[in-house]
Amino acid sequence: MTAIVDTIRGGSDAPQGLKARSELTARELMREVGSVLRMSEADVAKLGEIPVDPSEDQTMIINMGPQHPSTHGVLRLMLELQGETVLRCKPIIGYLHTGMEKTGETLTYMQGGTNVTRIDYVSPLNNELVFSLAVEKLLGIEDDIPERAVWMRMLLSELNRMSSHLLFLATNGMDLGAVSMMIYGWREREEVLRFFQKVTGLRMNHNFIRPGGVAADLPAGWRDDILRLLDLIAPRLDEYDTLMTGQPIWRERLQGVGVVTAQEAIALGATGPILRGAGVPWDLRRDQPYLRYSELDFDVIVGSYGDAFDRYAIRLNEVRESMKLVGQILDRMPGGIYRIQDK
């Protein structure tokens, strides 16, 4: 074992880390101070010149992660700090690189689901959905998917969006010191997972949405379960509002923090709540609808400041929107077969 440990230890990712300012070109520095769009290259060059490697007592370089309570295991940030101000930051990733692409090369289309469901493990059903849609398109069977399968897919992906956002709320609270929020978030997520377990047999990594439909029909009594779920979660979201949204400490810690402007979000290719938090109303379910989202009625939640608070509020309210959608899907769920039978 020691031999292996030694070989592994020999590995070094130092060149991926933060360098001294004097060793950087202006473009590199510009990227690290997060000002790709805010400053011209000349300005940044000046910035690089003024404190050329300031003496140690002015700034310090800190390595945060990959083992750090708020990086959840796999993100490493190298930071240059002055007091509590972050001057430069360089994220170093790859600690969770799993080689799924390479593994995927050897799998068949039907096996692919097991692989993709583990990519983003907090929303496994949505990953499977994307994969299945792509495969169906390649096979030319996207119009043959039975209605029930389509609506089941929507139902499951909306529920998964809820559980994923609840997880965000829980961990976000935990990272900011609101530990009770963590307990609350897990409590509600557990209810959703319980339903998933009934439907798919697993709590996570379901491999349930497959090319051609879904793996099984909804179990008996699913309607009551969902109604119970909706009844249960709605008041608890209001509880979150009491616990966090209006709370001064929470606001203090989130408002005005981590502002991403719309221009930056677009240039950096951000999507989802980050983009919407910056005030860009872009939601694929509305703007390039897939499945039957065009037939449903829901709002796209958009923020206005692009700060951490907006991103939190968007997720909280998207849970509400998803519940609205689940309610509509419940009313319109068609009968029939749940996967293609003859292909």
Binding site: D13, P15, Q16, R27, I93, G94, G99
Partner: peptide, 25 residues
């Protein structure tokens, strides 16, 4: 490119994993 280093693999990794002539391992 401002900083063309490896991003996912350790810096001293040999080979380029997603090339077809690279073994799955």
């Amino acid at each position: 490119h401002p900083d063309l280093t490896r991003i996912l693999m350790p810096e001293d990794w040999e080979g380029y994993p997603l090339r077809k002539d690279y073994e799955v391992g």
